[in-house]
Amino acid sequence: MNWDFIAEYLPMYERAAILTVKLGVIGIVFAILVGLICAMIQYHKIPVARQIVAVYIELSRNTPLLVQLFFIYYGLPKLGANLSPEVCGIIGLAFLGGSYMAESFRSGLETIAPIQRESALSLGMTNRQAMQYIILPQAVSMSVPAFVANVIFLLKETSVFSAISLMDLMFTAKDLIGLYYKTIESLFLLVVFYLIILLPVSILGSLLERRMRHAGFGS
């Protein structure tokens, strides 16, 4: 292990890590928004929109992120939409993550027995109040484990961004191997940096899961 090499290229990895986290976080925020909207549409069984969401979810969950990115980055310019690699990465992550988030929120919503909604309505609550005070708080707590798993999954998926020339962690490692042939050092730094990013997320996630477990009703 050549420690001088590691010290010299540490800043490069730091920049790459910041890019990875930045794109990851923005992408995940959009994924959550898309997921919430889709889950709500499915839960309320809104006609037409519901079918569109179903098609979207199947399309997005059954194609690899790499293929989606290739389509967005190399395909869309042929149709006249030339987007920067960063924007493509975020769109790709939101497109993929949206469906996973939607599924986790939907399964959370479905665990809440209909009797709770009916009870709330019979107590004189409006539909919105029942959603806001009774169903959503429980549904959110039920979907936390799946949600945390999705966040970690999406952060790891950012490693395919290298295919659209984004200098993320994966690309930096591959590039350094190609330039200086220091395979062990480059891969070592790669693993360390992914751990630095993902371990806190995973630890925070399990803490959150443990706290949220108290929020369920009758379980």
Binding site: Y74, S162, A163, S165, K174
Partner: peptide, 13 residues
């Protein structure tokens, strides 16, 4: 530098 990892993608871009 805009870096790609294959000839095909570089060409396309």
């Amino acid at each position: 530098l805009q870096k790609f990892d294959s000839y095909a993608t570089a060409k396309e871009a």
